[in-house]
Design a protein around this nucleic acid. Structure first.
Lengths: 321, 321
DNA sequence: ACTGAAAGATTAATCGTTAAATCAAGCAAG
DNA sequence: CTTGCTTGATTTAACGATTAATCTTTCAGT
């Protein structure tokens, strides 16, 4: 590897001058700077980030802690984050807090030991990551008000609930995957709020909830609102087996707008999170904190968007289909 | 941050001694070592990996380059890799080569500039990443014979093909997503080989291929074998619209065993890649290379596994269902 | 011609850790 | 009593880049 010294020796100048020329910081004659840049180019010089990091006290690396790397949302978050980080010349080191809040702490610790400048944490369901030696930004859980960037899950639920109410549904089942998840609680809460006064709603959770569906539909429910697309696909399968067709017999909605939402038939009405926006804000926030901004008490909420497709049907006699 | 020097000053000993005591390398009396470890513990000392990396010339970080971070397989690869790397106290820095082979080169370059000790590359469809200044291991494309760890895609296709032939299907459609992908070509090739002499097979690609299916089925095709689960879900949707039911009218298979394979109905017969094994071997290989082993010319192939579910049906009159 | 400032470059120290070389005792053997 | 070995610890230098402080020239102004 070619170092600054070799360029210096090559040209017959001191290492400091080379550094100055290349970073444009000190005082170097334009003529000399030109020669140095030329030689650096010729030798294919690349600054040693490790040395620079040691001197500066910053590594230019961000740690990303996910509750479960196999989370279907992870790819999109990782990509958007990676893109936003890239634009700031930051790297992203990943870590998985599989399962427990304890593992989450370990993961954070490992990243900090590696010298990351900041931590982006998508918290384990039902856990609030504690403050650390480095700036931290929490993604996607509004429950912790400190330094959080989150989708407006309540608002998203509200969007779906309103949509369903306007279609004329009067008896609705709200189905969540795991009651421990605050995100899913928020989504359900939004749905309930929107439906309140306009329709009856029953809340169910998990696999047991799916089993209850046929009976609930026979009792008059005309729509099933789930907290994730994956869950919606499972519901569709279960309903098909029980002889119910979507959207003819029952309307169905998901959450997240995963790729499978358009692959399944009927295409799923769902709520899309603005992942790139969340990523951008998260990176903005962590960079601000790294640059010295104080921990802000207020959390940022990013609006969600209703994606209307073919899995929901109007019950108004005047409407088509 | 507490450094080795502070511990040294605290105890009244030289920095080198502290380093020796903590790493167990030089000669230190057991008594002194005990005191040093104790004090380090008290102060919550954590070695500065940046300084260590500078001295050692190794960062302990691996770069992972993916063709597209939103690839549905990415989560599992990332998790398995992360786990295997963790066990060796290595970190994983991610990079996305979105779209082009050119971006792939940039991504590799950025990671190398960051001082990664090695590169794990899942190549862009149809591109062979060129050798770099650091050890590299290519994942999942056997086409490049150098330092490659790959699933046995041909074997996987063979597994599916054999399964379908044994069920008594005599006219089969093979459907790929993108003909540029060598992985998908391999899968199709394996299917053809297994079916050869036992059944007629027609190959189709992409969206246009999906549109052809109803006609092909009316012409007598009884099974559709796809190169990915996601594609299979799309096919199922399209067939349902055209009035065909899986597996009653036509058998359907996927590839990769994504979560959606069990969520859809009927549950999808597919081929599972042994992702943890691939990850382990990839990490093993890259570590060996980093430790100085020469680039091995032979590629490692990891067997795949047939996952038989409900989307394929036997045509033998004697069999049930 | 002398002073002072400005430009252009060099020195030396530093970031935290480590490896090699060196040094000082203690002790056994000749 | 000296030589030589072992043990325990210290000094020194280095990894590569950066930066404050310092040194030389050059040149404008009086």
């Amino acid at each position: 590897m070619v170092s600054i010294k070799q360029i210096a020796a090559d040209i017959g100048v001191s290492a400091a001058t080379v550094s100055n020329a290349l970073t444009g910081k000190g005082r170097v004659s334009e003529e000399m700077a030109r020669r140095i840049r030329l030689r650096a180019e010729e030798l294919g010089y690349r600054p040693n980030v490790t040395a620079r990091a040691l001197k500066r006290g910053q590594t230019g690396i961000l740690g990303l802690v996910m509750p479960d790397l196999t989370n279907p949302l992870f790819p999109r978050i990782a990509q958007s984050l990676s893109e936003a980080a890239d634009a700031r010349h930051l790297g992203i080191l990943i870590a998985d807090s599989r399962g427990s809040a304890g593992e989450q702490r370990n993961a954070m610790r490992r990243l900090i030991d590696r010298g990351v400048d900041g931590l982006l944490v998508v918290p384990q369901k039902g856990s609030a990551p504690e403050a650390q030696a480095v700036p931290m930004v929490v993604i996607n859980t509004a429950s912790d008000p400190q330094n959080t960037v989150s989708s407006d899950h309540v608002g998203g639920g509200h969007l779906i609930g309103t949509h369903i109410a306007e279609l004329g549904h009067r008896s609705v089942v709200l189905l969540g995957g795991d009651a421990v998840s605050e995100v899913q609680q928020d989504r359900i809460a939004g749905m309930r709020a929107a439906l309140s006064g306009r329709a009856e709603s029953a809340v169910r959770w998990g696999a047991a909830g799916i089993e209850d569906l046929p009976a609930l539909i026979r009792d008059g429910a005309t729509a099933v609102l789930t907290t994730s697309d994956h869950l919606a696909l499972q519901v569709q399968s279960a309903l098909a087996q029980a002889g119910f067709s979507v959207p003819r017999d029952v309307s169905l909605t998901g959450f997240d707008d995963l790729p499978l939402a358009t692959a399944m038939h009927p295409a799923l009405t769902t709520v899309a999170q603005n992942v790139p926006e969340i990523a951008m804000r998260a990176i903005d926030a962590i960079c601000a904190r790294i640059a010295g901004a104080p921990a802000s008490a207020d959390s940022q909420t990013v609006p969600t968007r209703l994606v209307q497709r073919a899995s929901t049907r109007s019950l108004h006699p005047t409407d088509p289909t």
